[in-house]
Design a protein around this nucleic acid. Sequence first.
DNA 1: AAGACGAAAGTGGTTGA
DNA 2: TCAACAACTTTCGTCTT
Length: 317
Amino acid sequence: MGSRATSRGLDESIQKDSSTCSECGSKKTVQISQTGETVCAECGLVVSEKRIDYGPEWRAFTADERRARARTGSPMKQTAHDKGLSTVIGWRNRDSSGKKLSSERRAQITRLRRWQIRSRVHSSIERNLSQAMSELERLSSQMGLKKGVKELAASLYRKLITKKLVRSRSIDALAAASIYAALRLREMPRSLKEIGRHTYLDWKQIGRHYRLLVRKLGLRMPVPDPMNYVPKLIMNLELPAVMQEEVLKILQDAKNHGRLLIGRDPRGIAAGALYIASILTDNRVTQREIALIAGVTEVTVRNRYKELVRELKIEVK
DNA sequence: AAGACGAAAGTGGTTGA
DNA sequence: TCAACAACTTTCGTCTT
């Protein structure tokens, strides 16, 4: 038996990894970058101790670290643009010897000035965009997202830029928010916390930026549907796939019943329905297990389960 | 002994004056 | 801006299997 990693609060990131835990057989492993260990997400067994961290070694988590680890090239935060990095065409219409310029010459200079300003703005947008895109790339590959989701997120981010909402806001937070929004638009919800786990950001920050994004872009989010959570739950609980039908049947009934679903956490409803199905099909799973996977508490699973049984008149046991 | 149950108090977010 | 509010969580004692 290997040693166990118990410490919390490290930088954990779920990796797509083929290694299987020798203790509990789970395929989910978590890499802890600080120590280089790969740990089973289920039981904490250290699966492998020498895994390479593929991330760039200068990856920084806070503004301070970023400054400390910066290498050559322009600093990331350039509060005053062009600080000593490019020549600015002066505003006085005189040449170097102080003589007044001819009108054609002046017009030419004005044109030049205008272009310079444009290119400056252009390049700052470019810089922002390229940083954002690489963050989107990093996040979606780390989270194993489909290409379509990433592209949707990217287009959301571009809209933010054209609406001039990016300036003075965290690029990474907006990128994460774009991902979150894209996932919800595609009805493949992941929790804010799950996304937060792959960034140095607090999930609440991502949530704030997400709300801004939805508001300013006037997005209409599809109502979260409990059905979307079912496949993931079944998979993570390693239940037979046939159960899915049973759960969906219950959820469909609940939908038709009306007002059973509104205002409720869809994950709780999915969990409750799954619990019922587990009894009906004799694949009993404890409330505790379901709650853990669904990301709600036992109490919520219980309440939803009770409600569904009562309102839909389901015979259990 | 493990799982299910329900009461009670606490938490963070929404709503409406 | 504030308070009321609903949903959910945490915690814990008790009942059931």
